[in-house]
Amino acid sequence: MFRRLAFQNKEGLFLIAKFNCTCASLEDFRMARESIRENLQTICPEYSMQLFVAINEAVNNAFFHGINDHKGTQVTLDINRNQQDLCMIVRHNGEGFTPEYIDCTTDHEVYNESGRGLDIIKHYVDSLEFSASGCEVIMHKNLNISSMGGVI
């Protein structure tokens, strides 16, 4: 669901955009992808594709590495944007996982068939953090105030 909110503080009118969705399966996520892409185009047109790439990798990781038993588990995506920052949180209610990176800069590991997802996310966001439980990935993209795009 996408929402635009505005409130007043001492610096003046403050505007934010929010999006969230919950997927109980990879099939649910498959059905939600286009909506996520479209909403990112509204929320942050200047980085929409890069942000979608990061979200897609994070959600895939949640389903394939964080959730061992797909029954009764779900993955939630929250996106919040204000003038300076866009925050994306992917969380799941599974067991969590320890992030593992492959170093794509070495000739040996470039032939690995998996393990590129986190490296790709790191390329497209400004910060990437994991909760201690391994059930939550928090990604931030710094935004230029002058690049508010068409969001608000």
Partner: peptide
């Protein structure tokens, strides 16, 4: 217009 890391992995597997 887009390929995710699992798609890249499949292409690596086929290359090997």
């Amino acid at each position: 217009d887009y390929i995710d890391s699992s798609g890249l992995g499949v292409l690596v597997a086929l290359q090997k």
